[in-house]
């Protein structure tokens, strides 16, 4: 089994001096689905930007055997797909097809192979019908799914999603859950939506003040009321994570 993420003592301070990551230790195995939970300002997004080489911090970070550094940025971007919180940031090309092709073409694939990848990725999120539409013509739920397709087309070994269920109505949220559940990739889901995390991920990590504060099975962590309260996390009223897990299984 390949070790997908291996971080030891990962630290990062923004130019203003704010220490966003204060020594993150995290190991994620190939094929795992891990929810990254934590309050605002915990360092979740900063960690996500490290996984793709957009930020380079101090300490040790290996993704699928590649050591993160200035020379391996291209490999990290090919192997790790980031889906940003606001699909309008991610979808910048005039049409969906061109946007989904953007990543594969940057990987150096030919136009024909890129178009095959586009078709495959849009198929995986059920969005083939909108290939020739402009992103602004799509609903928020459709945009989110297309944003996921833009990175799936690069066939990443690790998919990292930032708040995937934000601003979605219940139906779009349910459809997104089904799309993600059907994926065969290692998943890291950064979210405040604990019910979403419980349905999708078997493991959860609580990040706060730039450190991993708890790491364990998602349902057990979410059942620990004291832990959640200590890190400003809250389950929806009446939600039972253990029962949700059993129902999902």
């Amino acid at each position: 089994m390949t070790c997908t993420i291996h971080a030891r003592g990962l630290r990062y301070a923004y130019p203003g001096g704010h220490l966003a990551l204060a020594g993150v230790d995290l190991t994620v195995q190939h094929g795992e689905r891990v929810a990254v939970l934590g309050p605002n300002g915990a360092g979740k997004t900063t960690l996500m930007l490290h996984l793709n080489g957009l930020l380079l911090g101090d300490g040790e970070l290996r993704i699928g055997g590649v050591v993160a550094g200035p020379d391996t940025v291209a490999d990290l971007r090919a192997g790790v797909g980031l889906v940003f919180q606001d699909p309008d940031d991610q979808l910048f090309m005039p049409t969906v097809r061109e946007d989904v092709a953007f990543g594969p073409l940057n990987l150096g694939l030919g136009a024909q192979e890129a178009m095959r990848r586009v078709d495959e990725a849009l198929g995986a999120v059920g969005m083939r019908a909108v290939a020739d539409r402009a992103p602004h013509e799509l609903s928020m739920g459709q945009r989110r799914r297309v944003a996921i397709a833009t990175v799936l087309a690069m066939r990443p070994q690790l998919l990292v999603l930032d708040e995937p269920s934000a601003n979605l109505d219940p139906r779009a949220r349910r459809e997104l859950l089904a799309v993600l559940d059907a994926l065969d990739t290692t998943l890291l889901v950064v979210t405040h939506d604990l019910a979403f995390a419980a349905r999708l991920c078997e493991r959860a990590v609580v990040l706060d003040a730039g450190r991993v504060m708890a790491d364990g099975p998602c349902d057990e962590l979410l059942a620990d009321a004291a832990l959640l309260a200590a890190h400003d996390l809250e389950l929806p009223e009446g939600f039972d994570p253990l029962r949700a897990r059993r129902a999902a299984a």
């Binding site: 930007l49 793709n52 957009l54 291209a74 971007r77 090919a78 797909g81 980031l82 940003f84 606001d86 309008d88 940031d89 991610q90 910048f92 049409t95 097809r97 061109e98 092709a101 953007f102 990543g103 073409l105 940057n106 990987l107 136009a111 890129a114 178009m115 833009t150 990175v151 690069m154």
Partner: peptide, 24 residues
């Protein structure tokens, strides 16, 4: 701020300064 986020999203998918051409 959105411009900065868009640039990050582009860089995350391997953008290095030239736009690839998709539709012939």
């Amino acid at each position: 701020a959105r411009g900065e986020r868009i640039y990050l999203a582009m860089a995350a998918r391997g953008f290095t300064g030239t736009m690839p051409q998709a539709v012939p």
